[in-house]
Structures are given as C-alpha cells and as structure tokens.
Amino acid sequence: MKGYNFAYLDEQTKRMIRRAILKAVAIPGHQIPFGSREIPLPYGWGTGGIQVTAAILGADDRLKVIDQGADDTTNAVSIRRFFARTADVATTTKTADATVIQTRHRIPETALRDGQIIVYQVPQPEPMYRLEPSRVETRRMHALADYGLMHVKLYEDIARLGHIGISYDYPVMVNARYLMAPSPIPAFDNPKMHMMPALQLFGAGREKRIYAVPPYTEVRSLDFVDHPFHPARAPHACGLCGAGDSYLDEVLTDDRGGRLFVCSDTDYCETRRADGQVGAEGVPVGMPGGAVEATQ
C-alpha cells in the first residue's frame, strides 16, 4: 500500500517483534513483554495477532484468517483485507493450503502440519488474572512456578459443582513449566495443542505480550487424577455435513426451541460437503436454490 511499509509495520518495529517471538519460542509458554504498537485496528480486535502476523508474513505466504472458526465473519474479513492491502499476500480459506493461519477463538478441525504457523489473537495472556489481578504478583508466581492458586480454584469448582467449571480459555501447562492461557478457544480444542506439528504463536497487543509453543511440545490441560480433563462439545452431528467429531455452533431457527447445529469450522464443513457428505438437515452441494435448506 502506498505510503506504508510492507505489512504496515516499519522495519524497526518488526525487528523488535521478531526478537520477542524468538525468545518466546526459546521459552515455551512464557509471556514476553514487547513494545506493542498502536495499529489502525482497535485494541481487543486482534492487534497482537496482527502484529505477530505482520512480523512473520512474506510474499511467499498464503494467509488464512478465521474468527470463531469461520473465514467469513466480519472481523476475519477485515483482518484478511488489511493484509491483502498492506502486504499484497495471497489468502486462502483452505486450512491445508495456508502457511500462516491467524485465528480468534478456534483451532481448525483439519490437523495442522509441519511448517505451518498458527497465530492466536489473545485478549488476556495471563491465565491467573481472574484469581490475582495484579500482574506484578502473577509474574512472581510464574517465576516460582507457583500455580497453587489455579489448582485451588479448580479443586473448589469440583467440590462445589462436581466438575471443573471452565469451558473456554482452559489453562494449560506447557513443557511442564509454564501455566499458559490458550486464548479463548473452547476446551474442546485444547488437545490439538499437545504435540502439534505446527508452530503456535500468541499475540496480545493491548496487554503487550507475545508467547509461543514450539512444534511437538507437551501441552497438558490442568486436571486431577480422579477428575480428568473432559473436553465438551454439543452432543449432535453437524446438520449440514453430518460430522460427528467437529465443534458445533448452535443456531436458533425460531422462537419455539428450534435449533440447528452446524460446524463452527466453515472450511471443514464445506470440504466435507464438497466430498458428498450430507447432514440430516442439509442438501447436497450444487442443488438448485443456492441457500442451504434446513427443515426444523
């Protein structure tokens, strides 16, 4: 884009972010403070992810941007356009074709592979912030690997509710050293982080932190021997493609309790339907009418 550097950020800023990313990879799960810049999107809308993506993106990359698993949500569209404008980079909606995937709140259903990079947008990098709001204190706890506060919280959940009451942004231990916020992905996605072949980078712009999980690194969701981690999904199959293994969005279809469950990962759902898979409430791709019919 005229008047701006490749991928918007100036080279000095990119160097600063790149140095932070390398430290983050060298210390898996540890939050690296960085001089987060003010960029032309609001804080809380992916400014950390955008800065990380801008620092790594090159002309050879193919970028996929998703929000809630979907490529066509407005914020995903907006961020994809930002990079198409400022970096003239090729974009794709296919998980398998992407070299860099920027995401908010989901990990794609299609398993990521060696050489891919997934960049998470992180609103709150500190996993203990609800228990201890002072970052001076939580920093000390990370230094001492003192995570008793979090274990007590989970134990109290079990005592009171019979199970752990966290359903997203479920805390993980990385490389058996750092407690880490996986960003607000559903707990359903947590197991995908463990020994993932792709490099995982996390950017929190407003909170000015970058952290990372290298490929093939141990990522364990916190749990107890007698209360093992239990990732939940709605107990249904996708109404459009019939998938029984994907994370589902619940769509209200009327005010009398009618609802439709569909894959939150639009690429996964579309790929399955293109392969001829049809859910109970869908119609095969290519049928007349265009819109996807759903009976209730």
Partner: peptide, 12 residues
C-alpha cells in the same frame, strides 16, 4: 465481536 464459540461452550 462474535463470541458464539465461547458462549456455546458455556451453554454446554
């Protein structure tokens, strides 16, 4: 911004 993935997990 959409939060329906997280809201869905809370619903469950």
């Amino acid at each position: 911004l959409p939060h329906y993935v997280d809201f869905q997990s809370e619903l469950e």
